[in-house]
Design a protein around this nucleic acid. Sequence first.
DNA 1: CGTCCTATTGATGGGGTTCAAGGCGTGTGG
DNA 2: CCACACGCCTTGAACCCCATCAATAGGACG
Lengths: 254, 254
Amino acid sequence: MPRFAHPDFAYTPLVTRLGYYMGVPAADISALDALPYREQRFDRGDVIIARGASINWVVLVTSGWAARSRNTRSGDRQIINILLPGDIVTPDVFVLHRLDHEIEALSTVTIRFLEKPDLQALLERAPGLATALWWAAAQEDSIVREHVVRLGRRNAIERIAHFLLEMHRRLMIVKQADEGAMILPLTQLEIADALGLSNVHVNKTLFKLEDLGHIRRQKTVTQLLNIPALAALCDFDTLYLHLEADQAVSQGTS
Amino acid sequence: MPRFAHPDFAYTPLVTRLGYYMGVPAADISALDALPYREQRFDRGDVIIARGASINWVVLVTSGWAARSRNTRSGDRQIINILLPGDIVTPDVFVLHRLDHEIEALSTVTIRFLEKPDLQALLERAPGLATALWWAAAQEDSIVREHVVRLGRRNAIERIAHFLLEMHRRLMIVKQADEGAMILPLTQLEIADALGLSNVHVNKTLFKLEDLGHIRRQKTVTQLLNIPALAALCDFDTLYLHLEADQAVSQGTS
DNA sequence: CGTCCTATTGATGGGGTTCAAGGCGTGTGG
DNA sequence: CCACACGCCTTGAACCCCATCAATAGGACG
């Protein structure tokens, strides 16, 4: 049974994550944790923000998993992006007045609400924080663009391999995963709704990945037994995560 | 043969587009046109910015069509978003140092390059412009999210209908389309690469839409003969375009 | 100890891909 | 000025990946 690194309790996950963006003083960034906030817990399945709702707070994920999702007329659901601890739920709250999609809890989550004026005042004092937050928002944009490629031009096994690798990388950034293992609190239906597949086919494809010896699953723990093989299988390239610290290590292939 | 509204020659398409964002003084916005710039023409098929290139300019589309795209190892291409006149090619140039996808010319395009410091200085003098540009960037994010839904949970005919409606709306915003017609300088292969389909199936599906009497095609001109029927077919809802001027008119359905 | 949700597995069918061939328009060079 | 090449469109045929349907098993929870 793999052990998981302890989260860095000194900081909120977002502050931990922003540390990946080089060139900004740590003091600027950690000032974010000093802002007054309200926190609320939601349970799996809860709608955190409804589609069409007006948004008036800066909203962050502090713990647990959530998702941006859309429900179609025919009853299908598409998960647009998974939101992990450290993700910004409402990056555009200063310019968009209504949310065009739904925010949904995928596990028990803690959501932090900041007052817009509070953050605005802080950003004027700490311009480095503004830059770092902008980077975080840009990173999510990039993740969504990669999701488009995943849905448009990869088959089921490639989509799932790519998805697992992305989740693992993103969890590592906020110190919520081990080198080769992570906790995935997702049902196969939720993976299916993220990847544009059916739950049945997700199930069969997960077994295919296990039979290949690339992953192992035990309850909510997913082990990545052979990350290079997984990356080769789906042409995974971390350029889109814009982790400058990585650039010396892994140069993009294609 | 439909006639097309004359573009508003007084302004750059981006300035025209930013006029859709209410509550910002027009003087702030039109100051954008006063910035010094360099413009360059590209021909269909040219790579405007290569994947992995470092980005040092604020880049805008002034005329013509371009695309964000990715090529997979197996030789497939996925078009992530179509860039029209008035679109911002590098919204994240101030925080990301390399482009994770390719910018490609889909027709003859004029690309405008602004110096980062020039724009930065202007934004300090005209904060309303900063807000409006942020809105434009947020609108593109939203369009990409909708693309995820389109790829993940819609079939071929719905994808194409939805795509045509989106292109028409976006062209209307920059005064490049008539009420019921537009010029689409795209090959069927390019539509296929945008929608995750094959060119063969795009061809057959376009005929299906014509047989239904919803569209008509003559060379590069595409007419939308029955927009309500098209919208009903694919569950098109403009909420994701965040056009405040529309909100009184069309409330979201689902 | 029933109930509900999730996981699992097999069978069937269809939407879309792939392969292949022909037509059409446009540009280019002899 | 014609011949040819090339890119794009069009159409048919065969196939396949994945959806759908259905039925069972396995927890978690009250």
